[in-house]
Design a protein around this nucleic acid. Structure first.
Lengths: 200, 200
DNA sequence: GCGTATCTGGAACTTTTTTCTAGAAAACCG
DNA sequence: CGGTTTTCTAGAAAAAAGTTCCAGATACGC
């Protein structure tokens, strides 16, 4: 009668996938414990067993989406050699991810500074640092070799992630005047210019 | 016995001020209707009469904070002539506002894409466009005069607001490795480089 | 098989938001 | 002024969302 329920670890996985679907289709305001358990055919007890709280589920989903984004960026950078191509690869990978995984990108941007994560902020932040390590490592190498201007590491990150995230937000919010394809063509070079050492 | 209650319009004003204080001291999770009404010595009925919903209050507060930020930026730009000094003035004004009105800046960044505004998104967005008009107008003039690179207007905005907002977020989140004073010295020039026309 | 640990279901409870309505204060107007 | 209308306030009650709890089911090691 009841469809075969996945159990154990699979249930947690299943809940995360369902949660993202619910978020994508019902939006922030339709994103409730009841909506997620109903959509997934899973009980409240299971959800709370695996995630402790609804915020816990949201934090896990956030972490999962973030992992995928940063993995995509790290992969892209790995195929480059110079600072210029590396930075531009990061930018393109972020924008490509935003386009190809719209739901995940939307959830990331909407949740980023948005209460869900308050209780798990520390965990999420350290997970972020871990996943970001390959990228920050590369940036440090560029700096050591003098391939980018001598700036504090956090400013270099700000100059890359700031514009890219803003572009993603504009695309995701459906701004009529924002063309993601054009951004993918123009932004990498512009961001690079903000980082290039003098006389380049 | 009961302290003299402000009435009418004044109550709405009073609630907004109280709300920001409550948000600043109790954080996102302590930011509830009851907390705000209790702290302000105002009843639920009054709050709902003036703002329709708790989200309505949050949207009004958001708009008010945003107005102040953009006014500060517009004032700063008004005192400049060239594209370079104008852009740099915007950047500095944003960062200065973040420092001087920490509570308002925190609320702005935390609420920006965060559910509170979903119901009033349209109003908030059009209010934003209005307040942004003096700034976008300036940027268009720069572009027409060839003082900045020929880029779509939304990309110019992205290249300015992206890094500045990211810097503000890092400062507000208390990142140990982020130094706002250093950012105020270095960012304006770096952002300018991303916008400068060729051969500058 | 047996015992233990893990997982699931759903009713009951808590907290937070929203609605509702009676009535007080202000504004308006002849 | 005196009456009428509108605006505003108060707080109880309802609705909605999140959380707790525990009885029972399932998987797993021995």
């Amino acid at each position: 009668m009841t469809p075969k329920q996945p159990r154990g670890e699979a249930t947690a996985e299943h809940l995360l996938t369902t949660a993202l679907k619910v978020y994508a289709s019902a939006g922030q305001q339709g994103f409730t414990v009841n909506a997620v358990t109903a959509a997934g055919g899973v009980s409240l007890g299971s959800l709370y067993h695996h995630f402790g709280s609804f915020d816990g589920l949201a934090a896990a989903l956030y972490t999962r989406c973030m992992d995928r984004l940063f993995d995509a960026m790290a992969d892209a950078v790995r195929r480059t050699r110079t600072a210029r191509t590396g930075v531009q690869a990061m930018v393109r990978a972020y924008l490509r991810f935003t386009e190809e995984h719209r739901d995940a990108a939307l959830f990331l941007h909407a949740s980023a500074y948005s209460g869900y994560l308050a209780a798990h902020a520390a965990q999420v932040h350290s997970a972020k640092l871990d996943k970001l390590a390959p990228l920050t490592g590369r940036l440090r190498e560029y700096a050591e070799r003098g391939e980018i201007a001598p700036l504090p590491a956090s400013l270099v990150e700000t100059l890359i992630m700031g514009p890219v995230a803003e572009a993603a937000r504009r695309h995701l919010s459906g701004a009529h005047d924002f063309d993601l394809d054009r951004a993918m063509r123009l932004l990498p070079e512009r961001i690079w210019r903000s980082l290039a050492p003098d006389g380049t």
